[in-house]
Amino acid sequence: MSGKVLDELEKIRKQALADIERASERDFDDIRVKYLGRKSRLTEILKTLKDIPSEIKPKVGKTANDVRKDIENSLNKRSSIITGNSMAAKIETGSEDITKPGRTARLGSKHVITQTIEEIVEIFVGLGYRMVETGEVETDYYNFTALNTPEDHPARTLQATFYLEERAGCGDERTLLRTQTSPAQIRVMENSKPPLYVIVPGKVYRPDVPDPTHSPMFHQVEGFAVDKEITFGDLKGTLEAFCEKMFGAGRKVRFRPHFFPFTEPSAEVDVSCIVCGGKGCRVCSHTGWLEILGAGIIDPNVFEVVGYDPEEVSGFAFGMAPDRIAMLKYGITDIRMFFENDVRFLEQFK
C-alpha cells in the first residue's frame, strides 16, 4: 500500500518537473492548477493522510510535502528564467534606427529684421532705456520742422519724402510717411520731463527705387538720452557699450565728425569690420570699418521747440538701420531680400 502511494508521488514529481521544463510563460497557471490545485492528486493525497496506516504516515507525509515544495520551487525558478528571457528578447527586438528624423512640431521663426531689432532693443533696455513706438505717418512739423530742418532742405522734397494726399475734411498740416524715427524725440519730450532714456524701433520710408542697397521702406532704431549733464563722452561710452554687446568684445569704434540738422556736434560711428576684424575685406570696402550709426548731441534748437532749457539739460541722440546691421552680420548683399519674403531665405533664421 505504502509503496504504491510513494511510487505515485515520485511519478507526480517527475511529470510535473518535466512539464515545468517545457512550459512557456502562459502555461504556468495551468501547471499550478494541475499539480498544486485543490483538485490535484497531490492535494488529494495530502488530504487523505489521516486514512493512511500510522507506521507509514510520516514517510508518505514527508514525501508528499517534498514533492509539493519541489514543484513550487521549480515553478518559481522556471518562471523567473522565462520572465527574464522575455525582457532580454524585448530589449533585443526593441532596437531603433535612431538616425531617422525626429518628430517635431512645426518650427516658426521671426523675420531676421525683427530678431535684429529685438536684440538692439534688449541691449538698451539693459542700459536702462525704455521702449517707445510712435506712428509711421507723421506731420511735416514732427518729421522736419521741430527737428531743426530748414524749410528748403532737400530732405523735404518729393524726391526724398513720401507725402500723403490731402483728404477732405482734415487739418491743414502736411502729412507724410516718416523718413526717420527721430520724430519720436519730439513726441516723447513734449509729453514728459527729463531724465529720458528712450529707444524707438520702427519702420521708415523714403522714395528710393529699390536696388541692392535701397528700399522705399526700411527700419531704424532711434535712441536718445536727455538729462542734467549728458556729454559727448557719454554718447561715446554708450555706443561703445552697445557695439561691444552687439558685435562682440574687442571691436573698435570710431566717431567721425558729420552733419545732421538736429544734432551738434554730430558724428558718424564706425565699428571695426565684423567680417575681417579690421584688416580690410570686400564687405568693408577694404577700409577695415563699417558705418553703423549716426549720432550727436541734441541741438539746442530742438530743446527750445519742446520747451526745455538747453542751459539746464543736455542730451544725445543716435540712429541706426537694423536692416544694414543684419546685412553686415549675415553677409546679405541685397536689402530687397528682406521684403521679398522668400521663405527659403527667411527660414534660415530659425
Binding site: G128, R130, M131, D227, T238, F255, P257, P265
Partner: peptide, 28 residues
C-alpha cells in the same frame, strides 16, 4: 563747440556713461 570738438579730435574725448541714476528701462 562742434568746431572745437572736431579739431580737438573726437577720439581724444574720454568715453563715459551717463551718471544719472533713477532710470527704469524696459517694455511696458
Amino acid at each position: 563747440v562742434e568746431e572745437i570738438a572736431r579739431i580737438y579730435g573726437f577720439e581724444r574725448i574720454e568715453s563715459t556713461l551717463p551718471r544719472s541714476g533713477g532710470r527704469h528701462g524696459g517694455l511696458d
